[in-house]
């Protein structure tokens, strides 16, 4: 490796989530996840995953010490990734040190203050997502709200999706490594990179011609636009129909299933029931525009 090799230590916390975002990242095709972890993501730049509960070898005290090392030795020079939502502190403990419980919300605050930047990976981390569903008794919320509440001024990028596409993560990180932190105009009003979340699914859907000609699927398995089966494509901003999932294999609408709008702050509350047709009023409100 070149002498100028730049290390980017990463602390990856898991809050109120399901590990699905990590599993989705494992699905990255080019680069493969082995390349992301072991090789230079870009020439001279290496992502160094210091703490990740699902992947790391260490358990118990040695795992917790890995967080401490990064905080102390790489202050203002490491990236903090959150997967899963933040909650009222008692609902999530990530370990124990010297007989003391380490609550995620406390540890996250401390680590966030010393991080270079924060990536909220997945809808839970970005906006609260699934665990914030009504009545939200665990008070689940996303990174943006947390930073605001705790008056922490750190740059953060939201990469929502349930789960998010691995390209959205790798592409965002690559952009940061090449050009530095994103300029405000490259993010939309909810903190997502416009590169990936700039266009309406409905505008790029291969079934769009069915919509334009009024041919609608009435039940699962039918040809036609999936609007009447509840498709949220007309109010969801993501590049799924162009990028496709799992190495370009398919996507939800490609499998005959309506988009459930999993990248939006409304997921899964305001945009459900998932299989009820969007109300016309809201439909026209969201239709044919780009962010």
């Amino acid at each position: 490796m070149p002498e100028s090799l730049q290390e980017f230590p990463v602390i990856w916390f898991q809050g109120a989530g399901c590990s699905g975002c990590s599993v989705s990242l494992l699905n990255t095709t080019f680069p493969s996840v082995a390349s992301v972890l072991l090789e230079q993501l870009l020439p001279g730049k290496h992502i160094n995953l210091r703490f990740h509960p699902t992947i790391m070898a260490a358990s118990g005290e040695p795992a917790i010490s890995a967080i401490r090392v990064v905080k102390d030795e790489f202050a203002d020079n490491f990236i903090l990734v959150l997967e899963g939502a933040l909650q009222e502190k008692v609902y999530c403990s990530i370990g124990e040190s010297d007989g003391r419980e380490i609550y995620l919300s406390e540890e996250f605050k401390d680590v966030a203050e010393r991080a270079l930047a924060i990536i909220a990976f997945g809808t839970c981390a970005a906006f609260g997502g699934i665990p914030s569903s009504a009545p939200n008794l665990t008070k689940s919320h996303g990174v943006g709200e947390f930073l605001k509440t705790n008056n922490i001024k750190k740059p953060y990028i939201n990469i929502p999706g349930c789960p998010p596409h691995p390209d959205w993560f790798v592409g965002t990180v690559a952009s940061v490594l090449i050009y530095g932190l994103p300029k405000p105009e490259s993010l939309d009003e909810v903190g997502r990179p416009k590169r990936f979340y700039g266009k309406l699914i409905h505008d790029n859907c291969p079934r769009r011609a069915y919509f334009d000609t009024g041919r609608f699927a009435k039940r699962f398995g039918d040809e036609g636009c999936l609007l009447e089966l509840g498709c949220k494509g007309p109010q969801t901003y993501a590049d799924c129909p162009l990028r496709l999932w799992n190495g370009g294999t398919n996507w939800c609408v490609g499998a005959g299933a309506p988009c459930i709008g999993c990248v939006e702050p409304e997921f899964p509350n305001r945009n459900s029931p998932f299989y009820e047709k969007l109300q016309e009023k809201r439909f026209s409100e969201f239709s044919i525009k780009t962010k």
Binding site: G20, N27, P163, W245, C252, V253, A255
Partner: peptide
Amino acid sequence: LRIRRIAHEMTAIFAGKAPHACLVPGGVAT
């Protein structure tokens, strides 16, 4: 790592994407 990823591509072929795939009551939508 590669084989596991291929298994998820297989999920996507009939169920759209993985993880968190497209499943419906009554059968499969594809």
